[in-house]
Design a protein around this nucleic acid. Sequence first.
DNA 1: TTGTATGCGTTATCAA
DNA 2: TTGATAACGCATACAA
Lengths: 315, 315
Amino acid sequence: MTVSRALNDKPGVGEQLRGRIKLLADELGYRPNQNARNLVGQQSMTIGLVVPDIANAFFAQIVRGAEDTAYERGYTVLLVNTGESVQREQAALDTLWQKDVDGVIVCSARMAPDELQQQVGRFPAAVLVNRELPQPAAQTATININDRAAAEAAVRHLLQRGCSRIGLAAGPATSYSAQRRMDGYRTALREAGLWFDPELLEHCAPDSAGGYTAAQAILQRRPKLDALIGFNDMVAIGALQYLQQNGYTVPDDVAVIGFDDIPLAAMVRPALSSVRADLTQLGRSAVEHLLRLIEGDETVGDELIEPQLVSRESA
Amino acid sequence: MTVSRALNDKPGVGEQLRGRIKLLADELGYRPNQNARNLVGQQSMTIGLVVPDIANAFFAQIVRGAEDTAYERGYTVLLVNTGESVQREQAALDTLWQKDVDGVIVCSARMAPDELQQQVGRFPAAVLVNRELPQPAAQTATININDRAAAEAAVRHLLQRGCSRIGLAAGPATSYSAQRRMDGYRTALREAGLWFDPELLEHCAPDSAGGYTAAQAILQRRPKLDALIGFNDMVAIGALQYLQQNGYTVPDDVAVIGFDDIPLAAMVRPALSSVRADLTQLGRSAVEHLLRLIEGDETVGDELIEPQLVSRESA
DNA sequence: TTGTATGCGTTATCAA
DNA sequence: TTGATAACGCATACAA
């Protein structure tokens, strides 16, 4: 007991004895066993982080920010990859719960809203990334990227350049992000007094092949297109390829903008303009919110990350 | 006790009682507490994974492969990011040890060889990625990418194309990989009866900026260069940019090859040839080796991953 | 200031 | 086949 007190800097130990204990512990390479600590029911100083695909740069950046912050605060991260499968998401949350994590951060889960809410409710604290909750729950916060604002920024930038026939390779119809970006797209057009032309919009897979075929489809319907927004950078780059292969000059004939600002965006020719969110910061912020929730702070609100337009050659 | 036996499918429980127990456990949402299990001294079914930078695609792929395999085998991965700092590497291994992990996988640590060996010796099992051990230790295996063979393959490919003045943007002088690749480079040249010209070699940071300046430096010394090998794809892409901006045609004037085959390699113009190792497979393999070590298999040997040349437009 | 008894949730061991 | 007891390593509550 005295040893425990000495090592944990708790009062009630003679200073000289404390010194001897610490010295000896050091010599012996003593490290307190975390499992035993957790068992007694304190904090486990561990948080769970659930991501669909760690090899995806988007999530990797978030993970990095989260890991860094957790480390600074003395927490360890339990990472689980779900491979976009609901079943594995379930299993992940089960595992984390069994390990007594102090809280979880869940990135864009596939789970249905109410099931997610229920699953996440078991934990002492939780932060949801890129998901909204049906009803706000205690001990839970959300962090979303302001997709509407991102899309609006893209449209306004193109309008300022003098574009007026702006296409949208909109990504998967089922994606929440895609829906919010479509929203922002329509809002910005309306504000500019422009009519929304459904023929300028095409859903597509969220990769370069999707962008390629979407660009093709839109241009066949509306050959006088003067700008194109991609659901993400890969889509935009696919569109870029189609345009270049079919005699359009970018940005003079058609300006192009993507989202996310992946490293590739700066490297293609012409360099791709993109609307970016600071994902490392998002990860940091997620952990900070989570720790505040863990500490019982009731004032933790949801956060909306404001993206910024990075203007390069393509628009 | 009977409950424990029933739920763990151990013999010594009446079948009907076992059934009732399982049913009830299910209803109650019972999940065994991992900390208590670990405390009793069984396996923790958890492995540690230490990487320098999870946001680096190279490591992200390894992590993904490792995570997948671990999940399939019922293990959970404790991920720790070290940010290329020796101190944090230390802290990471300490934390993992305190958590009673069954084994660790350490990716290209910065730690000095003997310190690494000592640190890693505390664990029941360990796998080192891209590191060699001073003296082979029990319960420890290594997985390395055959950098020498990779560099030799690159050089031979260039020789076959008719190149004979082959530059090397060699990466950080302190990197083990870089040293092995230099080795392979010199070996392949010697085999072809070519003299090694130190002026054709330039160390550089392992990113596109490094490649850019290295290309510049080498070309100023040897303007008649006809091929350039980058330490990795980012270096090669940086070199590509320098070449294009200075009027060289790739691959006609100067052929370019990189290493790693990151997704970006296929997307730049001209598409980059690269020597790739299957990193997801490496991650899978690392976990499989580790689990065999954990199970006490004495026959686990070191592994050497053989990379393959992916020939695209640039060489 | 120091030390003893107790309990966290699970499993190994031994008894019924 | 079932159940009682002890133990894992630590920290809380209480006694000396």
